[in-house]
């Protein structure tokens, strides 16, 4: 270690803070270990969520998109979901999140919002999940092995 300069300001850790600091470090380590364990077993309590890290570890060979259609005037019309729900994260739009698109309750809420926001005065909204295989090394991602998974059809409940 190089010698301290003459104008160095040295602030030692008070003894009480050393013990508390050590306890804090141990507690934090236990918290992260618990988060890892629960994440591994996929039974994550809510309070551990901010300590669990597993970004991009799983192999995901399928693209997922969500499409929506609105029944208005006796015909099904395609909805431009990014226009209706514009805010986007790098992970995609809100409805891309697995826990959103696979929850009837959440989709029902988004459907009611789409009923109002679409401007079509629809009777029903239908969500479908599209899945297809990712193509490595290609800028074009053709919809190979396309699978359409119905997510639900929801009646517009607003006063009409």
């Amino acid at each position: 270690m190089r010698p301290l300069p003459p104008n160095a300001l040295v602030l030692p850790t008070p003894p009480w803070m050393r013990v508390l600091g050590l306890l804090l470090l141990i507690g934090l380590s236990i918290y992260f270990i618990a988060a890892f364990k629960y994440k591994a077993h996929q039974t994550m309590p809510g309070w551990l969520v901010i300590g669990a890290w597993s970004m991009f570890t799983a192999k995901d060979a399928r693209h997922v998109e969500v499409e929506a259609k609105a029944l208005a005037g006796g015909e099904w019309h395609s909805l431009d979901l990014p226009k209706i729900f514009p805010y986007r994260w790098e992970s995609g739009h809100r409805y891309h999140r697995r826990h959103v698109r696979r929850s009837k309750k959440n989709l029902g809420i988004l459907a009611q919002a789409a009923c109002t926001r679409s401007g079509l005065d629809p009777e029903r909204i239908r969500f479908t999940e599209l899945q297809w295989t990712r193509t490595l090394g290609s800028f074009v991602q053709p919809q190979d092995d396309l699978e359409r998974i119905p997510l639900g059809t929801f009646r517009c409940e607003r006063p009409r």
Partner: peptide, 30 residues
């Protein structure tokens, strides 16, 4: 020109061990 308690740095190290270590372990194990 200040020398001070390393507690904050230790906390930072624990956090980054958790991030890198757990993502590495998930990759290795699963």
């Amino acid at each position: 020109r200040t020398w001070a308690s390393p507690l904050g740095r230790y906390l930072m190290i624990v956090v980054f061990i958790a991030i890198y270590g757990s993502t590495g372990m998930f990759k290795l194990l699963f």
